[in-house]
């Protein structure tokens, strides 16, 4: 197993899930031109739930979570996030986006701003928080991801792992109720994967609702309530992590697991 080498901090407290619904996706379909990327997706995520989405490349897993904050538009079905349905209404979209944090594979920090400015920009301009207060929040979260000393540097001066932790802090500064992670560790050196995963686990312990597209199966086993396996734009199998890894049901899942865990 490729990631057994990474010794992850296992959550100390049991992770609780509430009955309240955070995200509801019903009969959602998406096409890129003629290409049917997502087919009849049904998914309900409760508040506090941590979901890991895995699957082969091109299976639509990134597209799925990008639909949740409308970076991609869906053509059929409905997506309700925090009680707000995503339609073409721009005000609703901005409202959902300000409540949903997103972390990207390539960090996407703003290179012309310092680390602190990266973190304070959205709170100041979207939440209308006074600058001093935003600075305090930024430092709080930068401390939380363990890089307060880098606050006045520019993203280009940081390592990949540090940049990804800044990206997480930047999202957290908006005090989001849901976090989406789009392959957050795929662009990182092996040595840096752990520091990012540890940050994510800490977040999970605090009860953050998370959907995470990742191939880090160690992470899935440590914190996920549910693992979703996607292929060809469909949810093929979902289960709690123990069952999912030890007792996969579909042949496609078995093949996938044997390939990523086998070497």
């Amino acid at each position: 197993m490729s990631d057994t080498a990474i010794d992850l901090a296992v959550p100390k407290t049991p992770l609780k899930v509430s009955d309240e619904i955070a995200i509801e996706i019903v009969g959602m379909n998406k096409w890129y031109g003629d290409f049917h990327v997502l087919r009849d997706i049904d998914l309900v995520v409760n508040r506090g739930e941590r979901i890991v989405v895995c699957g082969p490349s091109g299976s639509g897993k990134s597209t799925l979570i990008r639909c949740v904050n409308r970076l991609e538009e869906h053509q059929k079905g409905k997506i309700v996030v925090d009680g707000v349905e995503l339609t073409s209404d721009l005000k609703n979209i901005d409202k959902v986006r300000s409540e949903v944090g997103m972390v990207f594979q390539h960090f996407n920090l703003f290179p012309h701003l310092t680390i602190k400015e990266n973190c304070t920009l959205a709170p100041i301009w979207v939440r209308k928080i006074p600058k001093r207060e935003a600075d305090e929040i930024a430092m709080e979260y930068l401390t939380k991801v363990k890089i307060p000393e880098q606050a006045d540097k520019y993203p280009g001066q940081l390592s990949g792992g540090q940049q990804q932790r800044v990206a997480i802090a930047r999202s957290l500064c908006m005090k989001p109720r849901i976090m989406l992670f789009d392959e957050p560790t795929s662009a990182l050196d092996p040595e840096m994967i752990k520091e990012v995963l540890d940050t994510m686990i800490e977040l999970a312990e605090e009860g953050m609702t998370m959907i995470c597209v990742t191939h880090e199966m160690g992470f899935a086993q440590a914190v996920a309530n549910r693992v979703i396996f996607m292929d060809q734009g469909q949810i093929v199998e979902q289960n709690e992590p123990k069952e999912f890894f030890n007792n996969p049901q579909s042949d496609r899942t078995k093949l996938f697991l044997s390939q990523i865990l086998g070497h």
Partner: peptide, 20 residues
């Protein structure tokens, strides 16, 4: 990615253009 990150933070079109 720069456009996406600005969008994902909830910045509207004019703000993301002006600031990012």
């Amino acid at each position: 990615g720069q456009y996406e990150a600005a969008d994902a933070l909830g910045l509207d079109y004019w703000k993301s253009m002006r600031l990012i």
